[in-house]
Amino acid sequence: MAAGPITDDMKWRSSSDGYIATEFDDTYLVFVKASAETHFLNFLSFGIVTETESVAQTATELAMNLRRRFELTDEELTQELVSLTLSELDDTGLIWPETV
């Protein structure tokens, strides 16, 4: 279930309690318990899920932290791609915007 229009100041969260992940060569099958749906994630989308487990983050914060974690430059990992991926993940129920 998507959260509606995504804005830059939204902070995103996830919880490892809600899914089961299996890793296959830097890609991940993720079974979401609530929906009984299975998703195929790459290192970026799964990285967003794991990054947001401990602390809620905006797209800007996520892009910065993921660049550091995966040793990527601003050009290689753009904030636009992070926002786009957040939108895709929002549809899966793996992440959700934190309510104030």
Partner: peptide
């Protein structure tokens, strides 16, 4: 991963049993 993703739709009770 691909084989699993092919087997899941062939299961008739995957949605029932879930996890």
């Amino acid at each position: 991963a691909e084989a699993i993703l092919r087997l899941i739709p062939a299961s008739t009770n995957f949605g029932l049993l879930g996890e």
